[in-house]
Design a protein around this nucleic acid. Structure first.
Lengths: 145, 145
DNA sequence: TTCCATGCAAACACTTTGCACCGTG
DNA sequence: CACGGTGCAAAGTGTTTGCATGGAA
């Protein structure tokens, strides 16, 4: 487990450190987490990791392809582990709820982007903003103009 | 022209000011601009507008539906005028080039999001990250392993 | 023993806020 | 002339960097 991580790191001249392992485990555990949340999670395990190390580590892990980030809010980016099956996100502007969606749902469109624009989309990074079913329903109830 | 803006503002109890008009014109002229870029553009016309007023004004204009923002970089948001025909963006991770795409290209997928998830996507805010045709070609050239 | 990695603190980039004054309606 | 808007400066977030020390290989 940790040997795989070590091998990946070594492949690019990096070293395996306790901090790097802790950060990766935190991202895997939290599923979707901002750097701050990763920092908090790692701190919970007492053996503190500095916030700047969290940032530096997330950068390294992303370079290795072990984590990815997407912008699910107007503020901080959200990181998730890559070994989860690839997915993109629906983000509700109103309730801020997040729904993970399988890429096949928009496969027709992504294929056209490839065919017609030569563009290879990175779906793991994709966040589609809008309004979720529940918030639409609630809003329509209150809109009896 | 400016009367339409005045009317829209008044409808929500806001006032028409020179600053608000300048900011809106700047967004229309620049097409895709960060708050900083809007600030610079408005400053070019000498009659300075404070940076905090730029932020406050963009917020108001967005509330009125006259402008929209999308996250085309990891840093500042990008604003564009809404009277442009609606479009979403392809952003190349490598060269940072931006391509505007008509929503019909991904219509099949957005329809499925509506049908299967009840989710109403806001395409004006959508940014699809990935790699553009040119950068793919260049990379493949250099990858003769 | 060599470098890469870390902690710390300071610097940065971007955005928001409090308050006195200004100007639209 | 009332009340919303602006400028200014200061404070807030989120992120990055320089440098001395620490520790993996």
């Amino acid at each position: 487990m940790s040997d795989d991580l070590r091998a990946r790191l070594r492949g690019k001249g990096y070293r395996l450190t306790p901090q790097r392992e802790l950060v990766l485990r935190a991202v895997e555990k939290l599923r979707h987490a901002t750097p701050d949340e990763v920092y908090a999670e790692v701190h919970a395990d007492s053996s503190a990791v500095n916030i700047s190390t969290v940032y530096r580590t997330l950068e390294v892990l992303e370079e290795l392809g072990l984590v990815k980030h997407a912008h699910l809010t107007d503020r901080a980016p959200t990181y998730h582990a890559v070994d989860d099956h690839e997915h993109f996100h629906l983000v509700c502007r109103n309730c801020h709820g997040i729904t993970s969606v399988d890429p096949t749902v928009i496969a027709a469109g992504t294929q056209r982007l490839r065919d017609e624009y030569g563009f290879e989309p990175d779906l793991g990074h994709l966040a589609v903003f809008g309004e979720c079913a529940q918030c639409r329903a609630e809003r329509e109830e209150n809109t009896q103009s």
